[in-house]
């Protein structure tokens, strides 16, 4: 009788557990999902909350996202207050103790990859949507993306030690590929002659920093504030003075603001660029994303 009881218990609990042994990873952004897929291969299911076309600062905390979080073994976010307006609501609503801050299932990668533009001294909201711990758009640097792959490999290994070698091997492959490609991308950008550029928001900071392009001005007068006529006139004056001819508008923003600039400086070129995997239909991987940005700089 006892044997029968334990057999039934085993069937109820053990077999279903084996059937769903694969880790389920939820990421806040598509870039993090793409990197996680590189690392995990077939050993985890991965899904992103945000779409690549959305502004990651302003994702709505839909209850359906809470369901995703509820089922997650690991929640990977950027941190640096990028998702502060929506992720805490999803974590609370997800009612999943595994992915609470401080648990193994909660991973913020941004603070671990040497963020840029960390404010010094006191900051105020009079400066716009300033991030107190640094610029959060870290995934647009291929080297930092490689570092993130390593961090994710560590965490996946902690959750699933049986695939540790695979996770670290995949992360190493991704890092090596980025290091190889970055040499070519740097050559192409150097050949293009572009040394300065304007962007709409400080999204491209890490890309510009890695490839030696100076982000001379931002179309937003302050982070999060739409361009004003007076500020656009200042940008036009600066572009003329410093002979800047490239404006890269991240494709979640309204690009029509550049019309006035192009009218004033016909030699200037305004391009709308995806800044996340899935930002355009053809952008399926981090490689595609960087390639797209490099081509935009080249004018191809």
């Amino acid at each position: 009788m006892n044997k029968l009881f334990f057999l039934i218990l085993s069937c109820l609990f053990v077999f279903p557990n084996l059937a769903v042994a694969k880790l389920h990873v939820v990421t806040t952004l598509t870039d993090l999902a793409a990197i996680t897929k590189e690392v995990a291969g077939d050993e985890a299911t991965v899904e992103s909350i945000a779409k690549g076309t959305q502004d990651p600062h302003y994702i709505e905390a839909k209850p359906s996202f809470m369901l995703k979080v509820n089922h997650a073994d690991l929640l990977i976010s950027i941190g640096l207050e990028l998702e502060v307006g929506w992720l805490p609501s999803l974590v609370r609503g997800g009612r999943n103790p595994k992915i609470k801050q401080g648990e193994l299932g909660f991973l913020e990668v941004g603070p671990l990859v040497n963020p840029l533009e960390v404010p010094t001294g006191s900051i105020s909201r009079a400066e716009g949507d300033v991030h107190p711990d640094g610029n959060p758009h870290v995934t647009l640097d291929p080297i930092r993306a490689g570092e993130i792959a390593g961090i994710i490999a560590d965490r996946l290994s902690a959750l699933d030690a049986s695939h540790e070698a695979l996770f670290h091997g995949n992360a190493k492959k991704f890092q090596d590929r980025m290091k190889q490609k970055i040499v070519v991308w740097k050559e192409r950008i150097a050949k293009s002659g572009v040394k300065k550029a304007i962007s709409y928001h400080k999204t491209l900071t890490y890309f510009f920093d890695r490839f030696g392009i100076k982000n001379s001005a931002i179309l937003e007068p302050k982070p999060g504030i739409p361009p004003t006529s007076a500020h656009v006139m200042d940008v036009i004056a600066l572009m003329k003075q410093e002979k800047i001819s490239l404006i890269m508008v991240e494709n979640m923003f309204d690009p029509t603001v550049t019309n006035k600039i192009i009218n004033d400086i016909p030699a200037a070129r305004a391009v709308t660029v995806p800044v996340a995997v899935g930002g355009e239909e053809k952008i399926h991987s981090m490689d595609d994303l960087y390639e797209s940005l490099v081509k935009a700089v080249e004018g191809k």
């Binding site: 557990n17 991973l107 603070p111 965490r155």
Partner: peptide
């Protein structure tokens, strides 16, 4: 088998988070 075993590494994981 069934109880979550996530305490040990969790403590070291996010030491540098904001």
């Amino acid at each position: 088998i069934f109880l979550p075993a996530h305490s040990a590494l969790a403590e070291e994981g996010d030491a540098s988070s904001p």
